[in-house]
Simulated assay, not measured.
Amino acid sequence: MKTSRLILIPLLVIQCLPVLCFSTDFDFFYFVQQWPGSYCDTKKSCCYPCTGKPRSDFGIHGLWPNYEDGSYPSNCDPQSPFDESEISDLTSRMQSEWPSLACPSSNGSKFWGHEWNKHGTCSQSVLNQHDYFAAVLNLKNKVNLLQILISAGIIPNGQLYSIESIKEAIRGASGHSPWIECNVDPCGNSQLYQIYQCVDTSALTIIECPVFPRGRGCDSKIEFPSF
């Protein structure tokens, strides 16, 4: 019996090694949406997609796996590149809710491919490619950021608003605190650029953020430009 156990143990270790090598774990997601008016209102400007000017709403930037220590995995599986045919049934929704404003104009596939290759491949223990993009679209529908802000009297009209009032409006509607990223317009004004919300590892539920990103801070009052 002792000999039999000695033989079995190495075999079990060898069988488990491939799983350990290729599995990727993470602690939560950042779900990031950006305001198109702020993206375009910079010195580098923007280019509308081939489908035309996006609607005046927050657009998706991505769903990013992260660790609780503030670090994050990236480009986890070069053997699983973006395949647009996998999401053909989602394309029209993505063009509307996940548009690319980068120049030159495009249909968005390069943007989506970047998001999958850098971030999505690190969530494959939970989501395949189709499920990843579908989950992002569904998350956007869970919390309507623009309507939340408008209901709180925070309107994209080029005026300045307290960053605390923006956070409070989103916290009151979603139950959880967001993180706000600002950029700077050509005149040097700090403006509302991206809103981060944290999501559990199933990509279903918005949660309180274990840690906020390290990034550009905001002035106490920030511009909410029109689009």
Rank of each mutant, 00 (worst) to 15 (best):
M1C: 12
K2M: 06
S4H: 05
R5K: 14
L8P: 00
L8A: 14
L12Y: 06
V13T: 15
Q15M: 13
C16R: 12
L20T: 13
C21P: 03
C21T: 08
C21K: 14
F22S: 15
S23F: 08
S23V: 14
D25E: 13
D27F: 09
Q33D: 03
Q34F: 05
Q34E: 10
W35L: 03
P36L: 06
G37L: 02
D41V: 02
D41L: 13
K44R: 15
S45A: 13
C46E: 09
Y48W: 12
C50L: 15
T51S: 15
K53I: 12
F58D: 00
G59D: 04
L63W: 02
W64R: 05
W64K: 02
P65E: 03
N66R: 11
Y67K: 07
G70A: 14
G70D: 13
S71K: 15
Y72S: 12
D77E: 09
Q79D: 06
D83T: 09
D83K: 15
E86F: 10
I87L: 05
D89T: 15
S92Q: 13
S92P: 03
R93L: 14
E97C: 09
W98H: 00
W98R: 02
P99Q: 10
L101N: 04
L101V: 02
G108W: 00
F111S: 03
G113P: 05
E115G: 08
W116C: 06
N117H: 13
K118M: 13
G120E: 04
T121I: 08
T121R: 03
C122A: 10
S125K: 07
N128W: 11
N128Y: 03
Q129T: 07
Q129D: 10
H130P: 10
V136S: 15
L137E: 04
K140M: 14
N141C: 08
K142D: 02
L145N: 03
L146D: 00
L146T: 06
L146S: 14
I148W: 02
I148A: 11
I148Q: 02
I150E: 12
I150L: 12
G153T: 04
I154G: 10
N157E: 15
G158V: 06
Q159I: 01
Q159K: 11
L160R: 14
E164F: 15
S165G: 09
S165Y: 04
S165P: 07
I166E: 07
K167F: 02
R171I: 06
R171G: 09
A173P: 07
A173D: 12
H176C: 00
H176R: 12
P178R: 05
W179V: 07
D185S: 05
D185P: 01
P186D: 03
P186Q: 04
G188I: 01
N189A: 14
N189K: 13
L192Q: 01
L192N: 00
Q194D: 09
Q194E: 06
Y196V: 05
S202T: 09
A203Y: 01
T205F: 04
I206P: 08
I206L: 04
I207S: 08
E208M: 10
V211L: 12
V211R: 14
F212I: 12
R214K: 09
R214H: 13
R216V: 14
S220D: 11
S220P: 06
K221F: 14
K221Y: 13
E223F: 01
F224G: 01
F224C: 05
S226Q: 02
F227E: 02
